[in-house]
Amino acid sequence: MASDRIVERRRVFQQYKADVKERGKPFYPYAMFHDTIMSLVVVAVIIGLAIVWKYSTPGSHTGTEAGWLGKLLDAPADPGTINFVPRPDWYFYFLFYLLRIFKWPETVILGTIGIPTICLVLLLAIPFIDLRAERRLSRRPVAIIASILVVLSMGVLTYKGATAKEALGSELVAKIPSWAASEGFTGNQKAIAGAKLFAVSGCLNCHTYNGVGGAFPGAPNLTAEGAKNKGIAFQIDHLKCPACKTPGSPMPSFQGLGQQNLTALANFLEASKGSKK
């Protein structure tokens, strides 16, 4: 039967070509006229957005305060900041929020890689999944339902991402007092500062700590890292170049955080002697 389908679709396409040749209109000027109008509209919208962006900025339209379309420019990048909430451009909000849905450590990878990859593969495969020649929407209920679901879910994820108050890091920061109580470093200010860095620097994307965080293959559970008594110097060197200290380690270097921050992180790790609960 498949060969019948192939013969039929070839025939339909040949007929389409013959029909267009006989009855179609030339691209120039007809279709090109519409394309040109649309292109001018696009350029006008882009220029309009640029103007609104600048002239809605308060004051002399040059500062770092947010106008209607956001800031012209934020403060300079500071790798040492520990309380900055990372936020992508708006068209990545759906991905950004997808991460927040997967809170259980074992499923984080689903949100970061799994679902986006599956969606991309499905998108590429659409012409090979939908092999029918039918193009009228009234005869394509699955396509209609799928497109409504995609638009709805992208819309909801983007909206939730846009209105999300806290990023992953700030939720983790809220857990620090309970970590300190459980691990017994409540009075240790260096360790507390390190814990804040630990919460916001993405460590828990891979590592597990006190029951939260990711479980990336090869990333050890750090709940009782301090019990191994490797020493603060080792921890700092390891953070600077993980693969130098543990050959084959997939962990990235955190040298960019700076010596002071790394010392705090090392203090935190060494103070983490294991959950006493």
Partner: peptide, 11 residues
Amino acid sequence: WDQTSYWATVV
């Protein structure tokens, strides 16, 4: 290379 762009890229 401002705060927004730096931290979004780190993540």
